[in-house]
């Protein structure tokens, strides 16, 4: 066991980890931040995406020890202190961009990563960016629409609501 420290959602946090402890496991089991989900074991579904030093990564495919000293953002840190959803979260609610909610934390974190680097993406860019985030409920329609809306683009002409 080694002691691992990191800044998570602006707060200093630490705990013990083995060499094999995954960042996702450390967040969920050691720090009790169960908003980050694990949906596969081959690094494909993206339910576990968090930001490490400002970059979206799959926390199930990174060792906790590799994140020692890093600045981590998770789904729990996205809303304001008073619980007000941020613009991206709010767009997901407004446009029904989630159903069962299991993939949602990873979707939000991946979408936030996209919008940080590409503030007004095209539909094709949004879809391409979500290559590593699998949703089984929504058929992606409302996820893509929500991200487009969160980027400030007009989505009123997109079919169906």
């Amino acid at each position: 066991m080694s002691h691992v420290s990191m800044t998570v959602n602006g707060k200093q946090m630490s705990g013990d980890a083995e060499g094999r402890t995954l960042l996702s496991q450390f967040l969920r089991e050691t720090l009790g931040l169960t908003g980050t989900h694990v949906g596969c074991d081959t690094s494909q579904c993206g339910a576990c995406v968090v930001h490490v030093d400002g970059v979206a990564v799959k926390s199930c495919t990174m060792l906790a020890m590799e994140a020692d000293g890093a600045d981590i953002s998770t789904i729990e840190g996205q809303a304001a202190e008073d619980g007000t959803l941020n613009a991206l979260q709010q767009a997901f609610q407004d446009h029904h961009g989630l159903q069962c909610g299991f993939c949602t934390p990873g979707m939000i974190m991946s979408a936030a990563d996209l919008l940080k680097n590409n503030p007004t993406p095209t539909e094709a860019e949004v879809r391409h960016h979500l290559e590593g985030n699998i949703c089984r409920c929504t058929g992606y329609h409302n996820i893509v629409k929500a991200i487009m809306a969160a980027s400030g683009q007009d989505v009123s002409s997109i079919a169906a609501e």
Partner: peptide
């Protein structure tokens, strides 16, 4: 290659 999160690591 892969997806954005994979490319980041």
């Amino acid at each position: 290659i892969g997806d954005p999160a994979v490319r980041a690591r």
